Simulated assay, not measured.
Amino acid sequence: MDVKKKAKEIVKRLRKVYPDAKIALRFENPVQLLVATILSAQCKDERVNDVTEKLFKKYKTAEDFAKADLEELAEDIKSTGFYKQKAKYIKEACKIIVERYHGEVPKTMDELLELPGVARKTANIVLANAYGIVDGIPVDTHVRRLSQRLGLVKSKQPEKIEKELMEVLDKKDWFEFPYLMQAHGRKICTSKKPKCEECILKDICDAYLS
C-alpha cells in the first residue's frame, strides 16, 4: 500500500476507535500548557497532572514563575523527574515571556523555539492546543514508536520523523494524529508487549507483517 494511502487509512480506523482522542495534559491557559509540556519530558502525563493541580494554584501567571525561588520551584515539581533542570527552564522561559512578550506565550514557532526547554515537540503542542495553530506534528515516544512500526517513517530522530509524517499525512490530520497514536500506543501498541492480535491495524502494519 502507498504510504500516503496507508496514513489516511490509519487515521480513519483509529478515529473510529478513539473518537475522543485529545491531549491528556490539563491546563487552562497557554502559560499552564507550556509549563505542563516542559514537565512532561520523561514523565507520564498523569503524574504531570497530579503535580500541576497544586502548582497552578501557587503560580498563576508567567510573572509568578519568573519570580519564583528556583529551589522552591524545583521542590514543587520534584516528582516529575529532572526537576532541577525543568525548574530552570520554566523560570527562564517565563522570564523571557514577561520581559519580551508582556506575559503572553508567543504564537510563532520561531519565537517559541527561543525559549529555554522548548524544542519542536513542545512548540507544536502549545501552538496547536493553546492557539489552534497547526505548524507541525509533535513527536513523542508513542508517535515515534508507532510511526516506525507501521512503516510510515524510516527516520529515528524526532525532527526527521516529523518531517516525514508531514509529507505523508494530510494537513487536516496533523493535529489529531499524535493523540490517536498516544491512545493506541497506551492501549494496544505498547512498547514492550504490543497486543498485535487485538490491533485493528495489523493487516497494514510493517512490523506485524514482517
Rank of each mutant, 00 (worst) to 15 (best):
E176D: 07
G117V: 05
N124A: 03
V153Y: 12
A183Y: 14
L115F: 06
E164Q: 11
V118E: 10
P178D: 14
T141R: 05
G136A: 10
Q182T: 15
E99N: 11
E111V: 01
V153Q: 13
V118I: 10
V134S: 00
I97A: 03
Q148W: 08
E162S: 00
A128G: 06
R145L: 06
M181T: 12
Y101K: 02
V98R: 00
L150C: 10
N129S: 02
F175L: 15
L152K: 02
M166Q: 11
H184D: 09
R149F: 06
L146H: 07
Y179G: 07
H102F: 10
Y101P: 08
P116H: 08
V126W: 00
P178V: 05
Y179C: 07
E111L: 04
R120Q: 00
K156A: 03
I125Y: 07
T190Y: 08
V105K: 05
G132V: 06
A128M: 09
E176T: 08
E167C: 05
L115I: 00
K156N: 11
S155M: 06
L169E: 07
K156M: 07
V134W: 03
V168F: 08
T108S: 14
M166I: 04
E159A: 02
R100I: 00
V153I: 13
G103F: 04
H102S: 14
A183D: 15
L180R: 12
K156H: 04
M166D: 09
T141K: 05
F175A: 14
T122L: 05
H142W: 05
Q148S: 14
H142G: 09
R100S: 10
L150T: 00
L180H: 08
L150K: 08
K156T: 13
K192F: 14
H184Y: 15
A119L: 01
D140W: 02
I97H: 05
